[in-house]
Measured scan of single mutants.
Amino acid sequence: MGSVRTNRYSIVSSEEDGMKLATMAVANGFGNGKSKVHTRQQCRSRFVKKDGHCNVQFINVGEKGQRYLADIFTTCVDIRWRWMLVIFCLAFVLSWLFFGCVFWLIALLHGDLDTDYKDDDDKSKVSKACVSEVNSFTAAFLFSIETQTTIGYGFRCVTDECPIAVFMVVFQSIVGCIIDAFIIGAVMAKMAKPKKRNETLVFSHNAVIAMRDGKLCLMWRVGNLRKSHLVEAHVRAQLLKSRITSEGEYIPLDQIDINVGFDSGIDRIFLVSPITIVHEIDEDSPLYDLSKQDIDNADFEIVVILEGMVEATAMTTQCRSSYLANEILWGHRYEPVLFEEKHYYKVDYSRFHKTYEVPNTPLCSARDLAEKKYILSNANSFCYENEVALTSKEEEEDSENGVPESTSTDSPPGIDLHNQASVPLEPRPLRRESEIGSRR
């Protein structure tokens, strides 16, 4: 089982795998120059863009038009607004034209077009017409509009002379109601789609790998820009990579689940303020055997998904993003964004995407760390350097704002901070800030 798991979770494809794949392509008759073999020097295209759209195009789909027309309502909801407006206008105009032609044909076959009612006051002739005051196609078209929109100006009306005319008036009224219901329903469904809710759900630009509770963890940050909550919010993550099976089958995008606390339930989050999602790199993680150097040379993509129900409509929305291997910062942490004021908490989104480097973060893999092949620094050293990194950030910001350097908390000259780390230190809580992250 261990060997199978290692093969499945191998992220960085070796040169031997690339040569094996190329040999397979030639042997199977696919070596026509169009096949692409992804190596370390040639990274694959992003499968999920940063804005959440999937970078996929469908080609050679059989009976595409028929399949889309069979699900016309979903098609109308998914198309762009400009095409929705075109369909909206065409549906009414074509129905008016169709029934206008029908009423014109009825008048033509009944002989109503030969009668001039402007110079004739004989009401008996008017009563013999199928539709009064309809003696041309324009008049028939206007009567069709008046019937379907129930305008009723009063000059044109159907008589009991022709039952077919009466039937067409009733039929057009029913068709008009159906068109109204369909168009209004599609427009309302399109307006109520929770897709735009994703514009106020954000992911951090970069993911980070750092120590948390004595273990290497992959972390990324999510935030909600609205005050309205995302009900039943939960997160998922998958690692996408290519691999070759033991039988020699090439899988271009193998999807591997990344555990973010599904078993323990901590994948469900209360997204009021930005939260750091934590994936513990343990023996079940696809990143277990990867060191910093392996991450730098790897070719994979981590897709992160945030799902929840919109509070206003109770409709489920899904926000997506992805991180390539070069977008994962090893040995970094996110800057705090949640600050405790006197009577409330304040979230500073200008710090949302910012990170700071944490010294002495192990550069080895989580496996080597678990097997004690890498000796961690003293816990006080880690905490102290973590505090120094934050303090230096604040000093830089104070210097930019014009604060005198004498007010900063610099260490005395001639003292090495790293050498001082081995000395037991008193706890130094942050002056006014605390970061709330997901705790395992």
Rank of each mutant, 00 (worst) to 15 (best):
L329M: 11
L287A: 00
T147R: 04
L324H: 11
L290D: 02
Q293S: 14
N28T: 12
K241N: 10
T138K: 02
L201E: 05
S95E: 02
A107F: 00
D17A: 07
D71M: 06
Q148N: 02
A27F: 05
V272G: 10
V134S: 02
W330Q: 00
Y356A: 15
E307H: 11
V175H: 04
V303E: 02
N224D: 11
D348S: 00
M84Y: 15
I266S: 12
R44Q: 08
H229M: 11
E394T: 10
Q420H: 08
E247A: 10
I302N: 00
E387F: 01
V61T: 10
E249G: 13
D114P: 14
A210K: 01
R80C: 03
I281V: 03
S228I: 13
I174C: 06
V48T: 08
A189L: 15
H353N: 08
D296S: 05
H343Y: 07
L230N: 11
S264K: 14
G100W: 00
S242R: 08
K128A: 15
L94M: 03
V131N: 01
T361S: 11
D348Y: 00
V303H: 13
I277D: 00
N386P: 04
V158D: 01
R82A: 08
T409D: 14
I258D: 01
R432E: 15
L113N: 00
E301S: 01
K227V: 11
S264L: 11
Q293P: 12
Q255P: 10
Y344K: 15
S204H: 02
R221W: 00
A140Q: 03
H279R: 00
R226I: 14
S422W: 09
I164D: 07
P336I: 06
K346S: 08
M84W: 15
V202E: 13
I305G: 06
N360S: 06
E400R: 08
W330A: 00
N28L: 04
A27I: 07
I151Y: 05
F143S: 01
I251N: 13
A370Y: 05
D282P: 00
R367Q: 03
N419P: 06
L363K: 04
L306F: 11
N378K: 08
A389C: 10
I164N: 02
V202W: 06
G31P: 12
P412T: 13
H332Y: 09
R268P: 05
K34I: 10
D284N: 15
I179G: 07
T409V: 08
E341A: 10
T407I: 11
Y334Q: 00
R428M: 14
F300E: 01
G414M: 08
D296V: 09
M84R: 12
V93A: 05
K190H: 11
N297M: 09
R40A: 13
F30L: 14
E426S: 14
S291Q: 05
M168D: 00
C177Q: 10
E395A: 08
T361V: 11
S381P: 09
D410N: 09
A210L: 09
C76T: 11
D254M: 10
R197D: 14
A22D: 13
D120W: 00
I106P: 00
C76V: 10
I183C: 14
S3D: 13
F30P: 15
A379C: 09
V175R: 01
A312H: 08
F155A: 14
K346P: 00
T316R: 08
L338K: 02
P336F: 01
I295D: 00
L142Q: 05
R8L: 04
A91L: 13
A165H: 01
R268G: 05
G176S: 13
V304A: 08
L390F: 13
A181Q: 06
L390P: 06
L329V: 12
E397P: 09
F92E: 02
K50I: 01
P163K: 06
K50T: 02
A107T: 08
D112A: 01
T276L: 11
G100D: 01
K292Y: 14
N401T: 12
P427F: 04
L417E: 15
F171D: 00
V158E: 02
V170S: 01
F352P: 00
D213P: 01
S242M: 15
D71P: 13
V166S: 01
R428P: 13
E395I: 08
R333S: 14
K227F: 10
V56R: 06
N206C: 05
I106W: 02
S124R: 04
G402Q: 13
E426C: 06
D78K: 12
Q293A: 10
S204Y: 00
A314W: 11
D51G: 06
L329T: 03
F99E: 00
R5W: 03
R46I: 00
N360Y: 07
R268K: 10
C54H: 13
A233F: 12
I106S: 02
V304I: 14
Y384H: 14
F88I: 13
M211A: 13
A207S: 07
A25W: 08
M309N: 10
F73G: 14
R80N: 15
M219K: 01
V170C: 04
L113P: 02
I244T: 09
A27C: 05
V56W: 11
T39S: 11
R40Q: 10
I295P: 00
E283M: 07
A314D: 03
V235D: 02
F143D: 01
D71E: 14
R428A: 15
A186G: 15
F143L: 05
S321F: 14
F382K: 02
G261S: 08
G100H: 01
V93F: 06
F262Y: 09
L290R: 02
W104D: 00
I375N: 11
S350K: 15
T276V: 13
L218R: 00
S322Q: 00
F137Q: 06
Y344F: 09
E371L: 06
Y117I: 02
